[in-house]
Structure formats: C-alpha cells, structure tokens
Amino acid sequence: MATELEFRAVSRRFAAHGKGGAVTAIEGLSFSLERGEFVAVLGPSGCGKSTLLGLAAGLDQPTSGLVLVEGQKVRGPNPRVAFMLQKDLLLPWRNLAGNIAFGLEAGDLPVDEKQARVQRELQRARLTDFAQAWPHQLSGGMRQRAALARTLAVDPGIILLDEPFSALDAQTKLTLRRSFAATIADAGVTALLITHDVGEAIAMADRVLVMSPRPGRIIETLTIDLPHRDDPLARSRDPRFGSLFDHLFEHLQHDDELVA
C-alpha cells in the first residue's frame, strides 16, 4: 500500500500576540495514512486538531518536521488534498450545482469535464433533484452532503473532515454518517476525520488516533477491526463496539484528569 499522507515529527508553534511567549499547538506529531484508509483523529477541544488540518491542506507550514502528501513535501495548497468543516461554507449566491463546481474553477479543466464532475457528485450525494436549489432552501444535512460533493468534485486523493457532523441534531447525524461513509467508500478516497465523538470515530474509521490536550501529541493508536466501514449504523450494533468505546474513552478521560 502506498502512503498518501505522512506527518514526520511535526511541531507547530504560534507566536502569541501581546501575551508574550509562544503557544505550541502540536508537538512531535508523527503518523501516516495509507491509500484508501479512513483514519479518525480523536481529541479534546483545543488540542490542535484544526492546526493539523491546516498543515495537511498546505494552508500553514510546520515550525519543524515534515508533512508529506504522496511522498512530496507540502509547500502550499495542493489539489490532491481537499477539506470540509463543521460549517458547510456553501456560497449563498450560488445554487447547489454552482457550489459544487466552486473548487473546480481554480483549475483549467474543460467546461464539459467540469459539468460532468458536478453531475457525478450530485448523483453520488443524491442531490440531482436539487441542483438548481439555493443553499438556504436546504436542510442542514443536505447542505453538508453538498459540501462533501464539492470536496470530492476536485478528485482529491485525501479529504480532511473537520467535525462535519457536530453542528447537526442527533437524528440527522446518524443518517449523514451513513451517507458520508457510503459516499467516501464509493469515491475510494483516503479520509482523515477530526472529531471529539468517540462513537463516531469507531463507527466510521479503520484506525483511531487519540490526541492529548495542547500541545497535541498522539497518545494512542487503535485499529478498528470491525466490518461494515461503509455502514456506521451496522457497525455501532457490533458487540465489540462497546469495549473499543470504553478503551478510547478511558484514554480521553485520563487526560482530562491530568489537566484538572
């Protein structure tokens, strides 16, 4: 298997404005994602998860260490990496098809190819009937599906998902996780899911990395050896789910106590 994304001893410090001294967001972070793998990064809030995302997307550079995408050092935004956030970031002045085409407009694809990609993703997200709808006319779940469609339209090798479900109600969350898992399996991309939800990490990922509070380090790696990666609901009914949950939850708990 080829390595798609790799962090080698990555640290990122930010000069604190006014307060003096620097904040270390992440320290000595090392991990790698194999092609097609779905990895969840689990951690308490403020553990540098978003910093990790910025580094992988090429929006930010590490203070020390190396970030590699497909074996190449990341020097800036990379068309192989695309991300989506908790906020759907749909442009309200564009209809759904226009929003899905947004990421394609930076490149110089022929018009036919762009349209074909938009159609492909509309279909995959089951939003074809809503191609002409405006974002405000859609429910939160549909908007997140559209955001994933926009992310996949650029044919990335890796997608970075920063808590994409956390703004939704419990019912929508379950439906959307299943939809995302199926879509990602269908697209065959490598995925890095950032989350603070233990159950979500187990239900969706092949492997879970647990991060410590700031400065973020990886304190535990757990391979989720359960079937049904494309169906989180089926997975959460697996009898082994509970013990995996307890194991990860303890690690998070333990760190909370250290802080307190």
């Binding site: 090429g58 929006l59 906020k87 970031l89 442009l91 947004f102 990421g103 407009e105």
Partner: peptide, 15 residues
C-alpha cells in the same frame, strides 16, 4: 468575510 471561506478557496488553489 468569513476567513474559513477564504481558507477554503485557498485550499482549492485559487489565486
């Protein structure tokens, strides 16, 4: 302007 929107555009390699 939402800085995340600008980050998204930058991540898509927009000039």
């Amino acid at each position: 302007v939402d800085p995340d929107l600008v980050r998204l555009a930058r991540a898509f390699s927009m000039r």
